[in-house]
C-alpha cells in the first residue's frame, strides 16, 4: 500500500514536472504530440483489455477508433440550418435539449450543428452497437481466424470512410468545434489551451486506467483471464464465455471510440488514415511490447512509442519500425519488454 502511494506520487510529480520543464524551456509544443499519444494510448488500453487479458486478438481497433472519431466529426460539422428554417420539430427538440447549438464555421457563417457532448454520447452508443453486431458472429472464431475476421472488419471500415461523401472521402472531416467540458475547460488544439488539455488528457487516461484496473481485478476480470488460458475450463466453471467475450469486445470498442472522439476534437479534424490497417497493427505491436496483460507497461510504451512516431523520429520507416517491434517481441519476449526484468528475477 505504501509502495503504491509512493509510486503514484512519483508519477504525479513526473507528469507535472514534464509540463513545467517544457514550458520553461519554450518547447511547450511537444505537449501537442504528448496529448495525442495519450489519446492513442487510451485506445490501446482498450485493446490491451481485449487482447492481453481476455486473449481475443483484434486487428480492427483502429476501425472502432475511427467510428468514434467520424461519428462525432460528422455530427458536429453537419449543418442543420436548412432543417431549422423548415421548422423541423426534431431539430427544435434537439435545440431544446441542448443537443444542437448555433456556432460560426471557419468562414464566419452561422451554422447549426449537434453539440460535441451529444455527439460524444451518440458516438459511444453507435460504436457499441456496431461492435455488438460485429462481435456476435466474429467472436465465434478463435486465434488466427479471429485475427483475420477483425482485420477484414478494419479494412471494411477503412474503405467505407475513404469512399463515402459524407465522411469527406480522402480529405476526411475538419473544422470541428472545441469540446467544452465544464467551467472553462475545453478539449481543443488551440495553443492557448495546450497546458490545460495536457492535464485533461492525463485525467481522462487515469479514469480509464482505474476503471480497467478495477474491472480486471474483479470477478469479471478473473473470468476474462480464465477465458484467455482455457475457454473449456472457464465454461466448465459456469462462465458464459460467449457473452463475456462479446461484452469485453464491446467495452474495448467503446474505449477506442472515446479516444477517437476526443482526439478528433483535439485535432479539430479526422482523416481516413486513422482507420488504416497499419494503425491497428501498430496498436497490436504496442500491446505486445507493453507486455500483453499489463496495463502500466502498455500505457508507458504506448505514450513513448506514439510520441516518437508522431514527432517523426522514425521518419518514413514508421510502419517498418512497428512491424519489426512486433516480430521482435514475438520472437524474443512474448511477454513484453517489462517482463524481461521479471524473468531475470525469477532465474537469479
Amino acid at each position: 500500500m505504501v509502495k503504491k502511494i509512493i509510486f503514484l506520487i512519483f508519477i504525479f510529480i513526473i507528469v507535472i514536472a514534464l509540463q513545467k520543464i517544457l514550458t520553461k524551456y519554450g518547447i511547450e509544443f511537444y505537449l501537442t504530440q504528448i496529448i495525442m499519444s495519450i489519446y492513442y494510448t487510451i485506445c490501446i488500453l482498450g485493446l490491451c483489455l481485449l487482447m492481453g487479458y481476455a486473449g481475443q486478438i483484434s486487428l480492427g481497433q483502429a476501425g472502432f477508433f475511427a467510428i468514434g472519431g467520424y461519428t462525432s466529426a460528422v455530427l458536429t460539422t453537419l449543418n442543420l440550418m436548412p432543417y431549422f428554417q423548415q421548422n423541423n420539430k426534431f431539430i427544435l427538440f434537439l435545440i431544446k435539449l441542448n443537443a444542437a447549438a448555433f456556432r460560426e464555421d471557419m468562414f464566419g457563417e452561422k451554422i447549426l450543428t449537434i453539440t460535441p457532448f451529444a455527439a460524444f454520447c451518440f458516438a459511444i452508443i453507435f460504436s457499441a452497437i456496431i461492435a455488438f453486431l460485429i462481435g456476435i458472429p466474429v467472436l465465434k472464431l478463435k486465434g488466427h481466424y479471429l485475427a483475420m475476421a477483425t482485420l477484414g472488419v478494419g479494412i471494411i471500415i477503412y474503405r467505407i470512410v475513404l469512399g463515402t461523401q459524407i465522411f469527406g472521402c480522402a480529405d476526411g472531416i475538419y473544422d470541428l468545434p472545441e469540446f467544452k467540458l465544464f467551467a472553462n475547460l475545453a478539449i481543443s488544439g488551440s495553443s492557448k489551451l495546450r497546458v490545460q488539455n495536457y492535464y485533461i488528457a492525463i485525467v481522462i487516461l487515469s479514469i480509464i486506467l482505474i476503471l480497467l484496473y478495477n474491472l480486471i481485478n474483479s470477478r469479471i476480470g478473473r473470468a476474462l483471464r480464465a477465458i484467455h488460458t482455457s475457454e473449456d475450463a472457464a465454461e466448465a466453471l459456469g462462465i458464459n464465455t460467449a457473452r463475456y467475450k462479446l461484452y469485453v469486445f464491446v467495452i474495448s470498442a467503446i474505449i477506442a471510440a472515446i479516444a477517437g472522439c476526443l482526439l478528433t476534437h483535439f485535432n479539430g479534424g479526422i482523416s481516413p488514415a486513422e482507420a488504416s490497417i497499419m494503425k491497428s497493427v501498430k496498436y497490436v505491436a504496442i500491446v505486445a511490447v507493453g507486455g500483453m496483460a499489463n496495463f502500466y507497461g502498455v500505457m508507458f510504451m504506448g505514450i513513448i512509442l506514439q510520441f516518437l512516431s508522431l514527432r517523426g523520429y522514425f521518419g518514413s520507416f514508421d510502419d517498418l519500425i512497428f512491424g519489426a517491434i512486433l516480430v521482435a517481441m514475438m520472437l524474443f519476449s512474448s511477454e513484453g519488454l517489462f517482463n524481461i526484468f521479471k524473468l531475470r528475477k525469477k532465474y537469479e
Partner: peptide, 11 residues
Amino acid sequence: TFQNIKLFSNM
C-alpha cells in the same frame, strides 16, 4: 475436471 489439467496458468 479435465484429464489434462486445465488450470489458469496466468493466475
